[in-house]
């Protein structure tokens, strides 16, 4: 697998709000079809890194490349690359003035030449994939938080993106829905070969889905571990990583994964 070309490259990325540096020296390569998890405690800059990766906030330093192409370069806006990835925001971020069907149809209308009837067909299919068949004409305010999240995922998948980003997918979901979402993520990867980047601090999710995990250490403001979470749990000598992966319990012995 390692000889596959990397899909996303982070080189020396530094994130900052004004003069306040959140995280520096972020280096990672994300392979095609990999589930990559960005983990760390609250306030460590996970979501900020995600915002930089989807082009919402330029990094203070360093470069982010997609298939070798720079995300932020002078002669191009991130918008050109944007349609190749889908993003599931923390609260779903559905467009509240539109119905679920219109939410999913909008990217299709903007980027494809499909006829309205065909678009309806695609919308129905995408909603069915996330278990929301029949909710086409509901507005975001009329459905529950978990449903919004799933509808947001349906919208993120509308254009069959090569890369899917998830910002805290299990936040606010009950354990069962959260687990179904994890399974859906793995299926998307297996069936469509989608590269998946997930920001989360849910240990259960991390161990269930991650091929590779990047640990952002809020104290040192640098990433301090990169690798498979099971391997990290077994072999990492970094106390902060061990404390995180074991919930701060039994940090001196190796629990069964």
């Amino acid at each position: 697998m390692s000889d596959q070309p990397s899909r996303i490259d982070l080189r020396g990325v530094e994130l900052a709000y004004g003069s306040y540096v959140v995280m520096r020296d972020i280096n990672a390569s994300i392979r095609r079809g990999e589930v990559f998890v960005i983990m760390g405690g609250s306030g460590c800059g996970k979501s900020t890194l995600l915002r930089a990766m989807i082009g919402l906030m330029p990094p203070a330093q360093g470069e982010i490349r997609y298939d070798g192409e720079l995300l932020f370069s002078a002669d191009r806006t991130p918008d050109d690359l944007a349609r190749r990835f889908g993003v599931l925001f923390q609260g779903g971020a559905l467009w509240s003035s539109m119905t679920l069907a219109e939410n999913i149809a909008l990217p299709l209308e903007q980027y494809t030449r499909l006829k309205p009837a065909e678009i309806r067909q695609v919308v129905r299919h995408k909603l069915a994939l996330v278990g929301l068949k029949g909710f086409e004409d509901y507005r975001p305010a009329e459905i529950s938080g978990g449903m919004k999240k799933r509808a947001g995922l349906a919208r993120a998948m509308a254009l069959d993106p090569e890369i899917l980003f998830f910002d805290e997918p299990s936040a606010g979901l009950d354990p069962l829905s959260s687990r179904r979402l994890d399974e859906l993520i793995l299926q998307l990867r297996d069936v469509l070969g989608t590269t998946v980047v997930v920001v989360t601090h849910e240990l259960e999710s991390i161990f269930a889905i991650a091929d590779t995990a990047l640990f952002l250490n809020a104290q040192t403001r640098t990433p301090t571990a990169l690798g498979n979470p099971h391997e990290l749990l077994k072999h990492s000598t970094e106390p902060a990583v061990r404390a995180f992966l074991t919930r701060g319990e039994s940090s001196h012995e190796t629990p069964a994964p």
Binding site: R51, I54, G55, L56, P78, D79, D80, L81, A82, R83, F85, G86, V87, F89, Q90, G91, A93, L94, W95, S96, L106, P107, Q110, R155, F165
Partner: peptide, 17 residues
């Protein structure tokens, strides 16, 4: 309200300015 709800970011993420 759209900004507060990340809806504006969602437009950007689809390359829709």
């Amino acid at each position: 309200a759209m900004q507060a709800n990340e809806e504006v970011d969602a437009f950007r993420s689809f390359g829709i300015p």
